[in-house]
Computed example of a mutant assay.
Amino acid sequence: MSNLGIFIDESGDVGSNSEFYLITMVFHDQASSIEEQERRLRHELDLMGLHSGGAVHSGPIVRKEDEWKNVDLEKRRKVFFKMFSFVRLCPISYTTLSVRKKECRDRFALRGRLANELGAFLRDNLAFFQGFESVVVYYDNGQALVTDLINTVLCAYLTNVDVRKITPSEYRLSQAADMLCTLELMREKSENGIGMSKSELIFFESRRRLSKVFLKTLKKLEFPKS
């Protein structure tokens, strides 16, 4: 039996600064190599004059923030699409837990809701996880809530779990989880009638293009893969 890698990223916070709280988990059977996909992405980023060893953070690319604040729109779109192509071609699947925070009276209710949803997902798919010799969880310990859920709920359901604290630049699949979480947040906003921000509208051009080019494509990666 092979090992299963689970790469985790989140969007939102336990305070009042976000409408939703999302946790995305990317699943990778480590017997399936992604070396060729990584090599291609590294080469394409090098051709664009970017430091290919750095992390590609999707949110700042869309919002023109941090290291992307002085990068023009065309180049940011190209980098985003290169990363999206990498995600699409990798032998992975993913799922996203999503909670609209106004449905939770406080952070404890939010934690309970996410714990219930994670537990239900693991119970429903226990046979899949038991088909691996071990499970390696990769997370950057960005938020205490997610670290807590990993160490309690996930480790309670799965045996032979190795939890590793990482930095996103170490693993492309951590960056894949970041991109998928970013796009799933866009899906939640769209399905709940929340308008796109100015930066999102500039970057994706329209909700229709966002759905057609990106969100519909991701259906093929949703766990379990069809």
Score class of each variant (00 low, 15 high):
149 L>N: 02
122 L>H: 03
83 M>T: 00
156 A>D: 12
141 N>M: 13
80 F>Q: 04
18 S>E: 09
171 Y>R: 11
170 E>M: 15
90 C>F: 02
70 N>D: 11
220 K>Q: 15
54 G>V: 07
216 K>R: 14
174 S>K: 04
213 V>W: 13
122 L>S: 01
45 L>T: 02
108 F>K: 06
96 T>M: 04
188 E>L: 04
180 L>G: 10
121 F>L: 11
61 I>Y: 02
120 A>V: 02
96 T>C: 09
107 R>Q: 04
15 G>L: 07
198 K>I: 15
49 G>M: 12
106 D>W: 08
20 F>D: 00
45 L>K: 01
181 C>R: 07
117 E>D: 10
144 A>D: 14
184 E>H: 09
183 L>Q: 03
223 F>N: 07
177 A>K: 05
199 S>Y: 14
218 L>P: 06
155 C>E: 06
210 L>W: 05
63 R>I: 00
62 V>Q: 00
14 V>H: 07
176 A>Q: 08
166 I>D: 12
144 A>G: 04
52 S>F: 05
174 S>H: 07
21 Y>G: 01
189 K>H: 11
65 E>V: 15
114 L>C: 03
79 V>Q: 05
115 A>N: 09
215 L>A: 07
35 E>V: 05
222 E>R: 15
82 K>E: 12
120 A>C: 02
23 I>R: 01
180 L>A: 02
178 D>H: 09
136 V>Y: 09
87 V>E: 02
94 Y>M: 03
133 E>S: 14
120 A>D: 08
101 K>G: 02
76 R>C: 09
40 R>W: 08
23 I>A: 00
215 L>C: 07
33 S>V: 05
164 R>N: 13
65 E>W: 06
170 E>G: 07
211 S>E: 13
169 S>T: 11
188 E>Y: 15
216 K>A: 04
58 S>T: 03
73 L>W: 11
186 M>K: 14
135 V>N: 00
186 M>L: 13
